[in-house]
Design a protein around this nucleic acid. Structure first.
Lengths: 195, 195
DNA sequence: CGCCGAGTTGAACTGAATCAAGAAACGTGG
DNA sequence: CCACGTTTCTTGATTCAGTTCAACTCGGCG
């Protein structure tokens, strides 16, 4: 049984331990593979078309994963401090990513490379457990999103977003929220106008 | 690196082994926990509101995972023979499922219970690896679907569906395909009418 | 002060939903 | 094997939500 509510980690190791308790020696091994990176607001963390080599914990800041069509941008997900992100399809397959990642605020992340994670998974069962549970959480989140994408009219989706991610709202532009919801910024503006 | 293309398993053990090679003794342990079930066309495999206790391999047949709103049905995914399914959100959390599962044809499945899988994951690292890779595959599939839900107009989504799942088309009703795409059967009929 | 980006508002247009009626396919019993 | 009813699919008319394009407002900042 896994739920975001129990996760309040402030760093990568804490996050991992909360999913799968790690003995100190495993922690040390894992720590030795981690590295930190800093990005400025607006900077690309991953360019679409390149391979996503790392999985990251957000120490501070805010990030979006997104993609473009000819005419519009769409946002897959926002990630704020205390959460982990990667572009799973590229990370898992180690093939070029259809998605990009961008820092929406000045952001500090702690990263672990694909090869290191795979190696650690083989060496330490508890790390594979951590990774498995992380994937489980991601899967549940994605199911939710698929369901609501199918079901909901834009104004319903917006109010659900408010409920689920309301605390992010003041940190996001209208345009980004709209891209997340799959509607235009103009439509979102109208939705907010009524009631 | 994981891709459906490499999976051509005809049974649960074969499927699992193709993701994570299993030694014979592990196979035997796993086999001892499996059980088979048969369902007739139209029969519910899981009723929404109940807890999904098992993960299943389809020996033969076809299945949909779905949910209702007041007025409409929506389909999360179809699964045909040779694939594994469960309702991940319920299975992972062991909480009541928002989704149901129904057999669209006479269907035979091989099942493994949640408790047994969790136990096997603890006991055998290779089984956890199998489960982790299965989750990875599911995550990639779901990302795809989220992206295309956001991006695509109905007729584009339909043609993508044809490409990806064309071989299922003759086994599905128009209504089910429409529910999968998130449009009405009437709209889908019109889309097919043009060119 | 004037510019610039972010958000709002209006008018015309478009894709899809809804409601309703008809056609085609399918199965079951006589 | 046909007749009937049911289900599945198509087609038309109307309505509505959301897009597009464009003009306008507002607050911050050089």
């Amino acid at each position: 049984m896994i739920s975001n509510r129990f996760l309040n980690a402030t760093d990568f190791l804490g996050f991992a331990s909360s999913l799968s308790p790690l003995e100190n020696e495993v922690k040390d091994t894992l720590r030795s593979k981690l590295y930190q990176k800093r990005y400025c607001k607006g900077e690309l963390i991953l360019e679409s078309g390149t391979i996503c080599k790392r999985i990251c914990f957000i120490d501070s800041g805010l990030v979006k994963t997104f993609f473009y069509t000819d005419t519009r941008e769409f946002i897959m997900r926002f990630f704020a401090e205390g959460n982990m992100f990667t572009v799973f399809d590229s990370f898992i397959s180690q093939r070029p990513s259809a998605y990009g990642i961008m820092a929406l605020e000045d952001t500090v992340i702690t990263c672990l490379n694909y090869n290191d994670l795979e190696m650690l998974c083989q060496q330490h069962h508890v790390i594979e457990t951590f990774y498995r549970k992380l994937l489980s959480m991601a899967a549940v989140n994605m199911m939710d999103r698929i369901g609501s994408n199918l079901e909901e009219k834009a104004h319903v989706a917006y109010h659900r977003f408010l409920k689920a991610h309301g605390m992010l709202l003041q940190r996001l532009s209208l345009a980004d929220v709209a891209s997340y919801l799959g509607i235009t910024q103009v439509s979102l503006s109208r939705i907010r106008a009524m009631k």
